[in-house]
């Protein structure tokens, strides 16, 4: 697992969270720029998914590969889910959901790293 890439995704996610948090606070619904932000995050996550799969195929695997892969897949599903939520909820609570997801993603990434670096029992 690429530590550098993980950090990049975490930072991007936090930036999106802060931005959407501000939007929510100002009472804006989800707008096109937010959607673009989500799309960028999605691309970053997809790159991570591909990178991790390549590493999984090549080299040593984490002890709990199944959980690791399920986390990877779940992460990729989060931005599209946010977009759907934002389109359904045309109020400030749309960006609020994105802000929440943006805060949860870095935590999930930490968990992902823990799974990757877990000692083999």
């Amino acid at each position: 697992m690429s530590d550098l890439w993980t950090t990049i995704v975490q930072l991007a996610s936090l930036v999106l969270a802060v931005w959407c948090g501000i939007s929510a606070f100002r009472g804006q619904p989800m707008l096109v720029p937010h959607l673009i932000g989500l799309a960028v995050l999605e691309v970053l996550l997809l790159v991570q998914l591909v990178l991790s799969i390549v590493l999984l195929v090549q080299g040593p695997r984490p002890p709990d590969t199944v959980t690791f892969v399920s986390y990877l897949v779940t992460l990729v599903l989060v931005p599209p889910a946010c977009a759907v939520w934002g389109l359904m909820e045309r109020s400030k609570w749309g960006p609020a959901v994105i802000a929440f997801a943006g805060l949860v993603l870095p935590v999930l990434m930490v968990r992902l790293e823990q799974l990757w670096n877990a000692p083999v029992v």
């Binding site: 779940t74 889910a81 946010c82 939520w85 359904m88 909820e89 109020s91 609570w93 749309g94 609020a96 959901v97 929440f100 997801a101 949860v104």
Partner: peptide
């Protein structure tokens, strides 16, 4: 199910998946 409820449902959905 709208407004703040939507955020609540989102958090619940995440927990359901997790």
């Amino acid at each position: 199910a709208s407004g703040p409820g939507r955020l609540l449902v989102a958090v619940y959905a995440l927990f359901a998946v997790a």
